[in-house]
Simulated assay, not measured.
Amino acid sequence: MRQYKLPFRVGHHFASEVVDYGKAHDIRPSDFPYQEARQIFATTLTEMKVAGGELPMSEAEFRAALDPVAIIRHRATAGGPQPAEMARMVAEAKQSLAEQDQWIKARRQRIDGALAGLDRDFARLGAP
């Protein structure tokens, strides 16, 4: 609803009413009647005392807004499920794992060196 310059509260209330209606009538998002969405939008504007008219979305836009794949693809938030963000997070996790692996290898080398030094020292103590 952002692209239609509607206040967040109006878009949120409209979406909530669509969900409530769908649940009450056992309607899947992909089957939600566009005409009913238009009616719910008009009722939302009236209830919220907001000037406006028709639902600004075409039926095709409304259908796209209910498509879960499109929702994920167009979501633009840090940590979200969109493919670009998932790729970024996986790359970041791989980098972090590589850094941790290097840290572990360095600590193991240091421990191995210390143990070898102890072995040498004990060997000298035991030698006549």
Rank of each mutant, 00 (worst) to 15 (best):
R75L: 14
K49H: 15
E92K: 01
G22Y: 02
V19H: 08
R88D: 08
P83V: 01
F32G: 07
S96H: 06
I104W: 05
L66I: 10
Y34E: 06
A93K: 05
H13G: 10
V19R: 02
A87T: 08
E92Y: 02
I72F: 05
A65I: 09
D101I: 08
R75K: 06
V10P: 03
P56I: 01
L55Y: 14
A106G: 07
K23R: 15
G11I: 05
R38Q: 15
R75G: 11
G22I: 09
V69T: 09
E61M: 03
V18H: 00
R2E: 12
F32L: 02
P29D: 09
A78Q: 04
H13Y: 11
F32D: 13
Q3L: 06
E92C: 03
K23T: 14
A76H: 14
R75H: 13
S16N: 08
D67P: 08
P56K: 00
K105S: 12
A123I: 00
F32K: 03
P81Q: 08
D20V: 04
L66V: 06
F8V: 12
I104S: 10
V69K: 12
G117D: 15
A87K: 14
E17F: 00
Q102C: 04
Q35F: 00
A98S: 06
M89I: 10
D119V: 11
L115W: 04
Q102W: 11
L125T: 09
P29E: 04
E36D: 03
T46E: 15
P83L: 01
S30T: 10
R124H: 04
R75I: 05
Q39W: 09
L125H: 13
V50H: 05
D121S: 11
E36N: 01
I40Q: 07
I72C: 14
G22K: 06
G11F: 05
L115R: 10
Q35L: 09
R9H: 15
A76I: 02
A91R: 05
V90T: 00
V10M: 02
G117F: 04
A24I: 03
R9Q: 15
M86S: 07
A123N: 13
D121Y: 10
G126W: 10
Q39N: 04
S58D: 15
P68A: 03
A15H: 05
V18R: 01
R124G: 12
Q95L: 09
E36F: 04
Q95I: 02
W103L: 14
D67L: 03
